[in-house]
Amino acid sequence: MPVTLKPVETYRDDFTFRNSAEAIARFPFPFPEDSYMYSVNIEPATAGAPGSVFEHWFDIDEHYRSEMAERARVLERDPDRCLVMPHMQQAGWDAVEMLMTHLATDYPEWFELERDGERWLWRNHALDLCQRFTFGDPASLPCEPLEYITRQVQGDFAMLDQRDGNLWMDAGMITCPADWSIKFDAGMSFTQWHSPVPMAHQLGVFDRALKYLMNIQVDQPVRRLNWTLTVNPRLDTSSETFHEWGGERAQVSAENVAQRVHLRVELQFMPRLPRSNALLFGIRTYLISLEELASNPAWACRLHRVLRDLPEAIADYKGMTLYRQTVVDWLRQFDPQARAA
């Protein structure tokens, strides 16, 4: 079934973002168990059920127009959220090819691609764009190739160069990170940019994950889910804008918790880029308010147990210490065991 796109909603100021019942039904709830601990939760990204967020490599949903408008707004204020080091030029073209071919194949009602050798014609009906360009010639596009295409695809994208037995964050379009910054992490290795994460290093999670990622082969992508909580449906929780959103954590109360607090899930998708041998790291973010989430009581019950028992170091790292108890208190009503106790 073709995806229906909603009119533009906002991820800031008046926060008009809401999920439809369909969007709630397909929300990638990330907890397979009642408790959570860091692990090497990577799996081959095989095609998921029709309509699910795992169906296609790059998921386009009802929020497409809103998210693209939000990205444009962030870039207007801060163009450096898109970064491509000179040796990542080719990876940028790889990303253009991968994203355009997959979108045109998976969402033909919204995207069309015609290729005649290196002469390409791209049509995006959702944003009403039409672009003729020469593949491989940056002068034939209005901006950096990575920027051009990722202004039209939901989710953040990092591109990692593989060398010296590590992965290096040498390019990316990062406008909706969960409390980090591409400017700060640029040029860092996998080991370096993960250094703030608690517990996982000691568990050997990162050593094993890195080995796995470096062996990803063309056409055999892998994926994993990561999660945190965000106050208000704000996509841009970048370190650079902390002053705009950090204070909102102190505004959560028993009265507003269900509307204000959102579970934020990242569907991370890692394919090898075939021409450059770089790794693409897609971070597709899904937001759902507790109120929307509780329309599925089983989810609310499980989230209650996960948050109640989450190790303090992880809760601290995820930035929820100030309001975790308020959330747990509200979710308790959905946990029959806890209510009985």
């Binding site: 790889d94 090819e97 063309v218 056409d219 075939p274 021409r275 450059s276 041998n277």
Partner: peptide, 8 residues
Amino acid sequence: LPSFSCGS
């Protein structure tokens, strides 16, 4: 054919 990077 799938694209490839040099050294493949």
